[in-house]
Write a protein that binds this DNA or RNA. Sequence first.
DNA 1: TTGCAAATGCGAATGATTTGCAGCAAATTG
DNA 2: CAATTTGCTGCAAATCATTCGCATTTGCAA
Lengths: 149, 149
Amino acid sequence: MYNQEALVNRLHARGIRVTPQRAMILRAVEAMPGHVTAEELYAAVQAESPYVNLATVYRTLDLLKSLDLITDADMGTGATHYALRSHADHHHAICRACRHSVEFPDHLLSGLIHDLHTGYGFEAEANHIVVFGLCAACAKIEELHSSPA
Amino acid sequence: MYNQEALVNRLHARGIRVTPQRAMILRAVEAMPGHVTAEELYAAVQAESPYVNLATVYRTLDLLKSLDLITDADMGTGATHYALRSHADHHHAICRACRHSVEFPDHLLSGLIHDLHTGYGFEAEANHIVVFGLCAACAKIEELHSSPA
DNA sequence: TTGCAAATGCGAATGATTTGCAGCAAATTG
DNA sequence: CAATTTGCTGCAAATCATTCGCATTTGCAA
């Protein structure tokens, strides 16, 4: 898996200070699977050391984002979800009814990304696209509700 | 263009009360082009009558959303943008550097929507998809900054 | 060691959205 | 019609994620 120190090394390599709190946050990001909220990371880091501030978590997340090491996505829950860039090989289709999310692979977007590039010169950062809609089950339910008009 | 009373009629048709404030908000939604924030609608309606509350604007927007008459999209500005469902025949590619947005047509997503449907039974409501990335100009600038490594 | 820039903690501020609740208006009932 | 139920509104207060100001601490360089 991940080096568990990969992010720390990346920061070092770029001559960025790696403070204890940053190291803890970085390790937490790497250790947690998939997408995490700032709050969840905060909780994880607190378990290790209670003297890390939520604001610092946000600031570190911002730093990592600006270095392109993590990606963020709005999954429609109110809180931003973060994930390692290297984890971003899939996307999400989220059902607006049951809130469940279906992951779908990267290549379903390759057409769109290609078209945006050739047609508009736009470099889509399609790392964690979120598409809303209705999952199979909920779509069926909606249908029942609307058809007997 | 739009009937200017189309939404009002739709509500009537569904047996939903059309109060003065709702009528004003509905007309404002129809009159304003493209995507609007709740705050902008609020301002527009205030101009007509100062006794309409922001909470009512939100509540009406929720109502319209639940009736599928409008769509909402997070354009990354903090505030949700609303648009008439009938206006939703395009999508947005937003540059994370210059914040400009490129509109792209519906059909670039047809492949994705089709794949999600056949592969996952997911009914994507791809009315106002927002894709972030870099526009042609900003991509070039980024390139200059990173290449001399 | 001295100094300065960068990083942190803390609590307060922000900004969009929601909610509780009392008052009102419209629709429904008898 | 009067009475009653149902739903809408305004208001102000509450939420919730995120950011800021600012005083303090830390890391690294001279």
